[in-house]
Computed example of a mutant assay.
Amino acid sequence: MTPRSIIKAAEWTLTEETAEGVPRAIFRVGCVTCGAESESIDNEPDPVEIWALKHTGLNPTHRQFKLTTEWFWRVRPAPGNPYFELEKDNQAQA
């Protein structure tokens, strides 16, 4: 007879990363026609939207763009997870 293992599940919560210095999102757009790309911009999509409009203005046949957005997430222990109290204690000490 082989020994049996019991794996106990714990709940986790997926949240947006809000640590200091971490951008909410990073936006970048690329032209599908020629491959030209905007700069990567933190937190504000307007500059990449303007870039796409200007790019089409300079190249009237370039009308398709690919938007890339990077978001930062963190997994935190939910109440009932053994790490929940440990994390709470660590935050109180900081």
Rank of each mutant, 00 (worst) to 15 (best):
E85R: 14
G30N: 03
P45W: 02
R28K: 11
A94V: 12
P23F: 08
T15S: 15
E20S: 12
P77S: 12
A78D: 09
H55L: 09
Q91F: 10
S38E: 02
T33N: 04
K8A: 14
H62E: 07
K88H: 11
E87H: 15
A52H: 01
T69P: 01
Q64T: 08
T15C: 11
E16F: 15
P23W: 07
V29Y: 00
P23D: 06
I7P: 03
V22S: 09
D46F: 08
S38R: 01
N43I: 05
N81Q: 10
E39S: 06
I50P: 00
E17Y: 14
W51Y: 05
C34K: 01
F65V: 02
R63E: 04
E11P: 05
F65A: 00
R28F: 01
W71L: 15
Q93D: 11
Y83H: 15
T33P: 01
D46A: 09
F84T: 06
E49I: 14
T56Y: 02
P60K: 13
A92Q: 10
L58E: 09
L53Y: 02
P60G: 12
T68N: 01
T56C: 06
E11L: 14
T2F: 04
E85S: 09
R63S: 05
G21L: 08
T56W: 01
A36Y: 03
V48I: 10
C34G: 04
P60T: 14
N90L: 13
V22N: 10
Q93K: 12
R74Y: 14
G35K: 04
R74S: 13
P3Y: 03
E70A: 13
A52I: 00
I41D: 00
Q64M: 08
P60S: 14
A25N: 03
E85K: 14
T15L: 15
V48W: 00
D42K: 12
E85F: 05
G30D: 03
E37T: 11
